[in-house]
């Protein structure tokens, strides 16, 4: 009863929507600069964005592209839209920043603006605020994208009638790289299992990005 109706993949400064390249930023740009460029390209005006940590920014931008023109709120009740996200490094980049404010006892200045972003589910919270999503939400931490777990759980939520639509995927950022794979699933069609759909789509993206390294 469920179908992946749209998907996006953003990594190594290239962003794809349904396998089509939509944005491409110079390989040499750091992620901060390319996120900023993407924000501009999307012509967003959302001051809260600038307070976010890089994990939330990445998830926010991914959701922005994914849900563009999707009419999610017209087709689904807020409390029937779920969000199930996987991640590996949690908020290590912000954790490190918060820890640095503690290391020098003479200049001890932990900041609430940093600390609030030391929880990985803040990224789902930011997406929920922006898109008025109030349904089931989960944040799973695994060493890499775990399609089986995400799919299993999303299927249960649909089967239990907890949700009629769901954002699912993998949002990860660490010192070396970032990756956002986000899909919109709804109950509109009969298709292969979500796991099969997730694996097929994700591996096609990974094959594309891996080929750049060669």
């Amino acid at each position: 009863m469920t179908k992946i109706v749209k998907h996006i993949f953003f990594s190594q400064n290239k962003l794809f929507v349904d396998f089509e390249k939509q944005f491409s930023f110079d390989d040499n740009l750091n992620f901060g600069t390319s996120f900023k460029s993407l924000y501009k390209e999307l012509k967003l005006d959302y001051p809260k964005y600038f307070k976010m940590d890089s994990l939330s920014k990445l998830g926010f931008l991914a959701a922005e592209v994914l849900l563009h023109n999707c009419k999610l709120n017209e087709q689904h009740l807020a409390e029937k839209v779920g969000i199930v996200i996987g991640n590996s490094s949690s908020t290590l980049l912000m954790d490190t920043k918060h820890q640095e404010t503690l290391n020098n006892k003479a200049a001890y200045f932990p900041s609430p603006a940093n600390f609030v972003y030391t929880l990985p589910n803040i990224l789902t919270g930011e997406i929920c605020i922006r898109h008025k999503i109030q349904g089931e939400n989960a944040m799973f931490i695994s060493s890499k994208f775990d399609a089986e777990m995400i799919a299993t759980y999303v299927e249960i939520l649909f089967d239990d009638k907890k949700i009629t639509a769901c954002l699912a995927g993998y949002i990860e950022i660490n010192q070396e790289s970032y990756e956002a794979f986000l899909v919109l699933i709804d109950n509109s069609n009969q298709e292969p299992t979500i796991e099969k759909q997730l694996i097929d789509i994700y591996s096609k993206y990974k094959n594309t990005t891996n080929s750049w390294k060669n």
Partner: peptide, 11 residues
Amino acid sequence: SATSNDANHIS
């Protein structure tokens, strides 16, 4: 059981 989100404020 169930979970939900306020979709209101992060902190």
